[in-house]
Amino acid sequence: MEEVVRHLPNKQILDIFAKRVLAKKTLTKYQIVFQENYTGGTPTGEKIPLKLYILNRLDPNNEPIPVKCLKLCKRVIAEGYPQNSIICNSKSKVTLRFQLILLVEYEDNSFDIITLPNNLSHRFQYDPNITKAIVQGTVIDSNGVPILQRQSTTVPYETLIINSNGVNDYPSFTYSVTIPFSEFDNALKKCELQDPTLQSYILLKNLSYDIDVIDVVNVEATNIVTSQTVTLSTSEVDFSLFEDIIDKLGIDQDVIIEGIPEAECED
């Protein structure tokens, strides 16, 4: 190619404006939907699957019809996400806001749609018009307030929170991971760190999930519509969502090359 360019007539020095990638970090199959493990009532900073108690259907005799399987139909990413930011020229923070649409198959081959986190509740905030799954009190507390979930045992550290507009009004999840520059494949020079155009660019790939339907569990709950205590027949399900997160650190830069423009305007 170099020989071809060398012998082309009317070649020019061209100034190409480009985003130059300086360093990259790939987080492979990262669990982005999880809950924090607790031991003796104390959070451990370790991730475990999000535990769902999905309401079973009832047959004409009010006998429960358990969940057979779940499938992820769609992950809806909020407008403007993923977001990325550079923190003190030492860390890259990636933030993703989304909701999940799941297809639930019951043992009688009937189906239902659950939207997470919209259809989640604490057992003391059960609303038959909204609730399709109960979560543990370490995810949403008894007052209906979501609790921040953390992974703080291994760098890079992660968080997951259910966004809330009030009790049983949970429009989305927000996941974030903070990656120190020391975790990237190339060390940045001081002049590159001080470049005002230094940015983080995010690529998401290979979305996958894991589902384990465990058992039928009766959950004692409070119906907030009738203010009555009820027993809910549920299916205990462990759910995890995974994704590859590729974070590229780059700057704006002029690249000088020798060649011929594909087309030029003429006066």
Rank of each mutant, 00 (worst) to 15 (best):
V225M: 10
I134Y: 00
I246F: 13
L102H: 05
K68F: 03
Q31S: 10
P49Y: 03
E264Y: 03
I256L: 15
I77S: 14
R6T: 11
E192S: 05
G259V: 06
I256D: 14
R123L: 00
R97Y: 15
I162R: 05
P146A: 09
L198D: 04
Y53E: 00
I147G: 02
T95M: 11
L116M: 06
T95E: 14
Y106K: 07
A187R: 07
L8R: 15
I246K: 07
D215F: 12
P43C: 12
F181V: 10
T234E: 00
E46M: 07
R57S: 13
P261G: 03
L207I: 08
K24W: 14
R20A: 06
Y201Q: 13
L72Q: 15
V5R: 11
I65D: 14
Y170T: 04
V5M: 06
R75L: 11
L100W: 07
D127H: 02
V94N: 04
D267N: 13
G45Y: 14
F242T: 06
Q125R: 08
D15E: 15
V33A: 06
S121G: 07
A78Q: 05
A78G: 05
F239W: 11
S176G: 04
N84G: 12
V104N: 01
R123W: 00
V255A: 08
Y53T: 00
D112C: 11
R6W: 12
T153I: 09
V94F: 15
D169F: 04
Q99K: 14
Q136F: 09
K25Q: 13
K29Q: 09
D244T: 09
Q228E: 13
R57M: 12
T153H: 11
L207Y: 09
S172F: 02
D267Q: 09
N165F: 09
I101P: 03
R97P: 02
L120R: 00
N61H: 05
